[in-house]
Amino acid sequence: MNKLEIVHNSKTFKKNDKEFCALQETNMSIQSGKFVSIIGPSGCGKSTLFNIIAGLLPPSTGEVLLDGKNIVGKSGCVGYMLQKDLLLPWRTILDNVILGLEIRGVHKTEARERALPMLQKYGLKGFEHHFPAELSGGMRQRAALLRTLLYDKDVILLDEPFGALDAQTRLFMQSWLLKIWSDFKKTVLFVTHDIDEAIYLSDEIYVFSHRPGRIKAKVEVDLPRPRNEETLTQASFQHLKKGLLIMLKVEQEIS
């Protein structure tokens, strides 16, 4: 069963009366519970595609089907973590994380009670009542992701969540994300620039061409799960990486 289908989506922006194509016609079908990554050069329309799926941006053409229902232009149907952590600086971490519940009308005290164990379980213990500016980048990303998770939609979109982190924190966060993914059984769409990251995390990888974006290839990752650091050194991992590197190199050269 396809959880999410992207049908003939494209997006053209108008800039000073000039048409500017950010995303060429794109089709994707994503099965329930899969971890799917999207990689592609900067500016190829990955965030644009996510904005369309999240209903924050109307596409120029096409439909987005969630469980077979068209959700184009409807926001709030999927969880979406934008490229920045976007924590509200005047709220504590706990109060940031419960934002989605609050909007749904859950009372603040109850929302806090529900969120607190999650913060403690997923590495933010002791920081519940701190303000975002007091946290490290990795912790802020974790808080933002927990906020998205607590919003509790089947599909979550993650736009380069670890892009701004150093290599070591990144590795740690990847394992953390995999744990969460297996705990919560969500369907994940994940944008990254990092090939290792894409292979390590995903079941499928979509490779986008340079601007204007278009799907260039779809790669299945059949590495066994659960994955750990050893996965990174396996021969099949290296093989996949080589293939993807070549594809992306071609893209870089064209652009």
Binding site: A54, L56, S75, V78, L82, L86, G100, I103, Y151
Partner: peptide
């Protein structure tokens, strides 16, 4: 910050939520 507004909409917020939770504070 327009992105904060966007983030709130992605959590299913209506305009009055955005107003009370982002614009005013």
């Amino acid at each position: 910050d327009k992105d904060l507004e966007k983030m709130l909409f992605s959590l299913g917020a209506k305009r009055h939520h955005v107003f009370m939770k982002v614009v005013v504070p």
